[in-house]
Amino acid sequence: MTNFIKDPVVMMAERNPDPVFSNDELVFSDQEKRLIERWKSQYPTVDGAIMRVLWLAQEKFGFLPPEVIRLTADEVGIPYANAYGVATFYTQYYKKKRGKHVLDVCTCFSCQVCGGYDILHYLESKLGIHVGETTDDGLFTLQEVECLGACGSAPMLQVTNGRYVMDLTHERVDALIDTLRKGKTPEFTSVTLPQDEDELGGNRRSDVKEFQASSPRPVSETVR
């Protein structure tokens, strides 16, 4: 397991990497450009749009190699260095290629005491990789992340910056991996407010899959 405390080495990104995408690929569609123009118009200066455009680029290209970051900077009209500084500051921007599905397992705070590490280790052995690695088939990348703001549903994970999968058990992890292997996206689940269970008899939202919180809380076997 990568442990910065034990091995405090900061690796430098390659200074002159070969581009992953060709110049033909490095274009935004007219529709995307319209979207970008709209975002730019929403801030007093165009700079404010860079985060949104980086998101758009990441969705389009899968990750953000330097040439893509440069494209976003040019499209927004800000210095490339600024865009690169922003891209490396925020953890959700992938500067390196990840697996098709990135499993961000929260092990922080409530998740730690409710078995976040158990889930992480279960996934490590299930997928045969260590945290930070990608499976050979390129399907899964496993990451340990900080609090995702779903502490009442600990332990939980997020799939590729998108869906939250909460109240994890080994069985739910198995089901999730199966779903993802089948090329499906797990459904959005709304964790029911306990008070709604009492007062409304269940989840208040009729448009989403409801999910009753498991009870009682799991016991954490491992804490690191």
């Binding site: 330097p66 210095p79 490339y80 260095a81 690169y84 490396t88």
Partner: peptide, 28 residues
């Protein structure tokens, strides 16, 4: 200096926390 004085914008701080350091973006 590169953003306020020379305005070449060739340098930025990269990464974050104790891992950060000044750098040019790749290819620059």
């Amino acid at each position: 200096f590169t953003s306020e004085i020379s305005k070449s914008h060739q340098l930025t701080i990269v990464e974050r926390s104790v891992k950060n350091y000044p750098m040019t973006p790749p290819g620059i």
